[in-house]
Amino acid sequence: MKTFQYERPADADTAVALLADAPTGAYLGGGTNLVDLMKLGVAAPDLLVDVSRLPFDAVEETGTGGLRIGAAVRNSTLAVHPLVRERYPVLSQALLSGASTQLRNAATVGGNLLQRTRCPYFQDVGKPCNKRRPGTGCPAREGAHRDLAVLGASEHCVATNPSDMAVALAALDAIVDVASGHGPRRVPLTDLHRLPGDAPDRDTTLRHGELITAVELPPPMPGARSAYRKARDRASYAFALASVGAVLQVREGLVHHVRVAFGALAAKPWRARTAEEALLGEPATTASFDDAVRHELAAARPLRDNGYKVPLARRMAVSMLTELAAASAGGTP
């Protein structure tokens, strides 16, 4: 690990000012990804600005009945929060699906969102990787890519974003609050992460020094049901092969509101907007769900060894939507 300076400012303004003057510095949240990457030599910041103790540790109802989640809230705290369990089960389930309790106890909400989109080649400094060293190539395309992206990848990168929480937040239309020297701004969660294109080294749309301060959820849709499901190689404590988070509101047998997001298929949580548009106003039946999800996943471009993800993700989404419809008020089983 390279040596670095450590600062723990008392407020966000100081944190932002410190990093603005340090082009190769980084914020430190729970450190569960960053410290690991520093040990591997993948990350080598010369300054860590510890933001884990900034006063962003509250989960509060908003004036409109939504929820405002401070960026320093620990993943485990958020997962078991009564309002999250009651109103946003997809988020509680996604958090509990991620990592181990030890890691969730350390990881912050802001840090979870800013963990690196990654693959085994990115983590191995002995290998070429366009994300770690732009222009060196992508061995994953011909190599070990069974776990990697089938949607939105580019010739330069096929890494996936491993966050379960972000998939749930995408399905919940979450907004991310960001502070910087240029003042605060609000970023829809679905615009926070980016597809690799020809700049796979950039995981997000944040500029250097921008600091996530909170995540805001809109009020839950009345009568809507939500859930998160994750397929993985072992029963617990593993990254997803595919995951799905969904919110469904049914009225008189018809889809009135639907959100579907996939994890582990792309470099960002994949909001299934094509499927959502196709389903609006349609009967809440397995046949409708299957048609819509097939339409969405027609965009998949699997590599040699990860084609299994497409039918896996489809079956997971269709069965989940079918179950949510059955559970919905006025839903048809």
Binding site: L28, V35, D36, L48, Q102, L103, N105, A106
Partner: peptide, 23 residues
Amino acid sequence: HGQCGACTVLLDGDRRVNACLLL
């Protein structure tokens, strides 16, 4: 690297963490 749990300790009471990933 936070994958095996052999370093698990308790912080501030009962909050279990991987000591290897905390600075």
